[in-house]
């Protein structure tokens, strides 16, 4: 039997306790819980994992739906919430590693108008590179951004659009947290897109091919 439950408005730890109580009923095979915060989703994911149950979550308007299923037994690595999952998600595939906010090196010019122009051109080239990849249909596993490369994630950067497009196609777009911090961008980037050097190395070593423009 499948059960639906509305847990909106309840304070922590009520949503977890209520869901556990329903799961304890032998006749229940799955629970669909409507909650109002991501914290509840993350806590329910932990509950499902501790019982070896399957777990899925999705946004529903301003709220979230968590589905815990007794039939789908969770594999060992899942279901981790996005923040922790990235630590172990590295798998082989094509990885694009961008460690600067430009494509190659611009022609050297003294500080001034020409220098600015060369920089802008190099950034624009990078944007074109990413757009071409996005439209090419090639299978890309992840785009990793480090050092000044994280500036592509600045909401004001021209590259934000193509990065979002890649994300929609299922490409993981991750940025080095230390670098975001350094360039003052940490507050502007979603948690699940922040990673660390350890995970970046894992991706690079596991990759079938690494492209670095």
């Amino acid at each position: 039997m499948k059960k639906d439950i509305d847990l909106r408005g309840l304070l922590c730890p009520e949503p977890v306790l209520k869901t556990k109580k329903i799961l304890d009923d032998q006749t229940v095979t799955s629970v669909e819980a409507l909650v109002d915060s991501e914290v509840n989703i993350q806590n329910l994911a932990r509950l499902a994992r501790s019982q070896n149950f399957g777990f899925k979550s999705a946004a529903k308007g301003e709220h979230f739906v968590a589905t815990i299923s007794k039939e789908e037994v969770a594999p060992n690595t899942a279901p981790e919430p996005p923040a922790a999952a990235k630590q172990s998600k590295a798998k082989s595939g094509v990885v694009i590693f961008i460690s600067k906010d430009r494509f190659g090196e611009p022609v050297a010019a003294p500080p001034g108008e020409e220098h600015e122009k060369n920089q802008a051109f190099s950034l624009n080239l990078l944007n074109v590179f990413l757009q071409t990849i996005s439209q090419s249909g090639h299978d890309v596993q992840a785009v990793l951004l480090a050092n000044s490369g994280v500036r592509l994630m600045d909401p004001e950067s021209p590259c934000v659009k193509v990065l979002d497009e890649l994300k929609e196609k299922g490409v993981e777009v991750l940025a080095c947290g230390l670098c975001l911090d350094y360039y003052g961008l940490k507050e502007k980037v979603k948690t699940e897109q922040i990673t660390n050097m350890y995970a970046i190395c894992e991706y690079l070593f596991a990759a079938e091919k690494v492209l670095s423009p």
Binding site: C12, S37, Q42, L47, A83, A84, C176, T191
Partner: peptide, 29 residues
């Protein structure tokens, strides 16, 4: 904690600090 009794502020702390933290992948959640 493994059963989901994790305070919201712990997730907030994870968000604020994890960018500068590294650990092996099989360290339990």
């Amino acid at each position: 904690a493994s059963q989901g009794l994790v305070p919201a502020a712990a997730y907030g702390n994870r968000k604020s600090f994890q960018g500068n933290v590294s650990y092996i992948k099989d360290l339990p959640l």
